[in-house]
């Protein structure tokens, strides 16, 4: 039987890898993939706690999280395509048109 702390530990490691990716990489596509990693690690936490408490709400919440992640990816990739088409921007540090 796998203890609950293993699942939480795995989720923490995945979350930190994703956070490091968001903070260090400049490529917007890779940053989005790192955000997906972080969302997934949170899902592991939700399902693990739900399973170990015999509670269905963890799974229900995880389903909603997956749906929101799909919506987020669709909108973010739409924004990225329009950025590349209009201004040839690929990296996050070129996004400075709102800078004062």
């Amino acid at each position: 039987m796998v203890p609950l702390s293993w699942f939480i530990g795995l989720a923490v490691v995945l979350f930190m890898i994703g956070a490091a990716g968001v903070l260090t990489r400049k490529n917007i596509i890779i940053m989005l993939m790192s955000v997906e990693l972080m969302l997934n690690s949170v899902n592991i936490n939700l399902v693990a706690f739900g399973h170990y408490h015999g509670d269905l709400r963890g799974q229900i919440f995880a389903i909603f999280t997956i749906t929101l992640a799909a919506a987020e990816v669709a909108v973010a990739l739409g924004i990225l395509i329009s950025l590349v088409k209009q201004r040839r921007i690929f990296n996050s540090d070129e996004l400075d048109s709102m800078k004062g």
Binding site: M1, L4, S5, G9, V12, G50, Y52
Partner: peptide
């Protein structure tokens, strides 16, 4: 984080048998 999870108070709570 891992220290808190495995060595802290959560370790005892987190190692219970799943009821689900």
């Amino acid at each position: 984080f891992l220290l808190v999870i495995f060595k802290g108070g959560l370790g005892k709570v987190a190692s219970n048998i799943p009821s689900g």
